[in-house]
Write a protein that binds this DNA or RNA. Structure first.
Lengths: 98, 98
DNA sequence: GAAACTAGTTTCCAATTGGTAACTAATGCA
DNA sequence: TGCATTAGTTACCAATTGGAAACTAGTTTC
């Protein structure tokens, strides 16, 4: 479970699952509040655990594409469950308690 | 998601889901490596988030029973998914990689 | 009276986490 | 020449996390 530890990994995976192939700057802009350092570090962790791949593309200014691996996609049910539960949880906070 | 943050909450919930009503000492013994301080603190967090209930029982030395709430049980799919995935993950580490 | 069991709390400390800001380095554009 | 964009890295710092060990406090048993 430490595979998903930290404040951002689930968010990053969720974004990548939804967006497909994405560049570093895409992620930086898409994920609200994350700093470059964090994104970089978390992506390295995810890559080490083989949940995402990192591909350098030789464009004008080089870009780097990140993508969820097939293996990483086996996490989709978990991510989805968590997202669903999050909605459920927030509905509970304001509104019908008890 | 910070509702499940920390090293122990998923473990505690999993143990309680599996064991039903459990006392503090039961949990302390069942969950390998956890210290009383941590168990106490994590249980307080879980109680605050209404995932478990705490009931003092007036036995000879008073005991305290913890139980997962109905609401907490809505987490069961997540906990299960995570547990399943954990098994899958460990199989992958030693054995058939690639 | 002393030891043991219940459920914690307190103190103190080390390691980890996460954030800001500045910096690198290669390339393109005006 | 100088500024922007790409993808990071580095330095520094504050807050949080987690662990060990000792302690509290009530009750029961030897």
């Amino acid at each position: 479970m430490q595979v998903l530890s930290g404040k951002w990994k689930i968010h990053i995976l969720g974004t990548l699952l939804q967006g497909g192939k994405m560049r570093f700057m895409d992620l930086l802009r898409e994920i609200d509040g994350i700093a470059a350092k964090m994104l970089s570090k978390e992506l390295q962790d995810l890559e080490m655990n083989q949940l995402v791949t990192r591909t350098v593309v030789d464009t004008k200014p080089i870009t780097v594409e990140y993508e969820v691996t097939e293996y990483g996609k086996t996490m989709e049910p978990i991510i989805d469950e968590i997202a669903n539960w999050g909605v459920f949880y927030r509905n509970r906070l304001h509104g019908k308690n008890e």
